[in-house]
Simulated assay, not measured.
Amino acid sequence: MELLRGVHNLRSAAGAGCVATIGNFDGVHRGHQQILQRVQQQATTLGLRSLVMLFEPQPAEFFRPDQAPPRLMSLRDKARTLAAQGVDQLYCAGFDEAFRSQSAAAFVADLLVDGLGCRYLVVGDDFRFGAGREGDFAYLQRAGEQWGFGVEDTPTCELDGRRVSSTWVREALAAGDLALAERLLGRRYAISGRVRHGDKIGRTLGVPTANLLLRRPPALTGVYAVTVNGPGLKQHPGVASVGTRPTVDGRDWRLEVHLLDYQGDLYGRHLDVTFCHYLRPELKFDTLPALTAAMQQDFVHARAWFAAAGLSS
């Protein structure tokens, strides 16, 4: 998949045209996958490339940086997931004051037509664009007739009578309901990142952990049975704690993973941590020995879950 940035030279990168869709695609959940499937079908029919346009930062992060909901995935993970869905090109539009204030007409003419060379556009049923959210599906239909591109919206993707959305995924993760999150995503929830040097408190407690620094507050917190993939690792069982480590300092958000029955140096490796089973909430303990005892119990419970699930631990 080709990653495109910046409006300059965008048309030459887009080539002869594309079938496009636009949105945040946070989580790339089943609703997003339904849209992507339709994009792929049209791209094949028309002999064009498929393209996803998304925003960085996400609009809610631009308008309300202190109140924006947690991201379900980083830009890197989003790109990887979209590539796995078969998307040919990803255009990451910088969402700033200039972008926010452009009219719906300028968005269509300058970006969709002159920039992307859009020949067909697939959008979700709630898509709005332009200053003041003036553009909607009816506006796109009229613009398509004017500029010569096709437009279609996709029906709502529902599960148990409710619309599948990134908000619902966040609610499931916040409640520790990994089974529901998996149903909404079509896969287990995962976070990836590069292992960094920490303060090595876990090592002093006899429980070494791989420390992944989280740049934003996560969509879930607590202690989980996880599997880890990365260089030299495949579905390796472990126990992960996501939070601010209230017993130690309670400051930065971190994902710390202890790999069960593992010996080796993980520093600098990029790991994918998949959340399999919720064990308990993150707690503040009065002493480090109390924390260590709780961690040992976490390992016992995780091993029991892995055994019941038919996975080695």
Rank of each mutant, 00 (worst) to 15 (best):
G202T: 06
L180Q: 14
L213G: 12
T204Y: 02
A181Y: 01
R196A: 13
I201W: 11
G206Q: 11
A181L: 02
D177H: 10
L173E: 00
I191H: 00
K200H: 12
D177K: 11
R194Q: 04
G193A: 09
I201F: 09
R188E: 12
L185C: 05
V207L: 13
D177E: 10
A190F: 14
R203Y: 05
L212S: 06
L212D: 04
I191R: 04
R187K: 10
L214G: 06
K200I: 07
R188T: 13
R196N: 13
T209K: 08
I201M: 14
V207N: 06
K200M: 14
T209Q: 11
G193K: 00
L205S: 12
Y189I: 02
E182Y: 01
A179H: 15
G176Y: 02
L213H: 13
P218M: 07
T209P: 08
T204E: 04
R216S: 12
G176F: 01
L212R: 01
R188Y: 12
A210E: 10
S192E: 06
V207C: 08
V195H: 02
L178M: 08
R196V: 11
R194L: 01
R203L: 03
V207I: 11
L185E: 01
G176C: 02
D199R: 15
L184M: 08
R188P: 10
L185M: 09
D177R: 13
A174R: 03
R196M: 07
R196F: 03
A210I: 09
D177W: 12
R194A: 09
K200Y: 15
R188D: 11
D199F: 14
P218S: 06
L184P: 07
L178K: 05
L212T: 06
G202Q: 02
G186P: 10
A190P: 14
L178T: 08
G193P: 02
L212Q: 04
E182S: 15
P217E: 10
V207H: 11
